[in-house]
């Protein structure tokens, strides 16, 4: 599993690539942790997790996502997931995560929902 993160305006965009199962869920948690710590310290209040590169996820990955969502909720921060592959969308439906997490079809639509201010910067970032 690979991950990158970048700050775009007031939003942290985390891109995940690969499989998230019981073998890699700790890596996924570790990828999210510094950004959740920033939520706790008040430095960061908006996170978008781009799952476009994720083609496999089990309950271990879902659990890590839910822990992140709960942490954000406690800090009155926002977290959203975006750009799910159809197979991952199906897993979200089966687990009912589609009812409890903010899910957007594209990263752009996630930005539009979480931070209007950051949409322009996200667009610039794409074209740069």
């Amino acid at each position: 599993m690979q991950f990158t993160s970048q700050k775009i305006s007031n939003v942290t965009l985390i891109r995940i690539q690969g499989r998230i199962d019981h073998n890699t869920s700790k890596d996924f948690e570790n990828a999210l942790k510094p950004h959740l710590d920033e939520c706790i310290s008040g430095m960061n209040k908006k996170i978008i997790v781009d799952l476009n590169g994720v083609d496999f996820m089990t309950s271990a990955g879902l659990r890590a996502l839910m822990i992140a969502a709960k942490t954000c909720d406690k800090q009155k921060a926002e977290i959203a997931v975006a750009a799910l592959q159809p197979i991952i969308q199906e897993i979200f439906t089966i687990s009912r995560f589609d009812l409890v997490l903010k899910i957007f079809p594209t990263v752009k639509s996630a930005f539009e929902n979480l931070s209007v201010d950051a949409v322009g910067d996200y667009g610039n970032n794409l074209s740069s």
């Binding site: 309950s59 839910m66 687990s95 009912r96 995560f97």
Partner: peptide, 18 residues
């Protein structure tokens, strides 16, 4: 469901289908 198990029904003592 997994979502119920780890949100509103966490610590209720039951598991999920998946």
């Amino acid at each position: 469901s997994l979502a119920d198990m780890i949100t509103i029904k966490e610590d209720w003592g039951h598991s999920s289908n998946i």
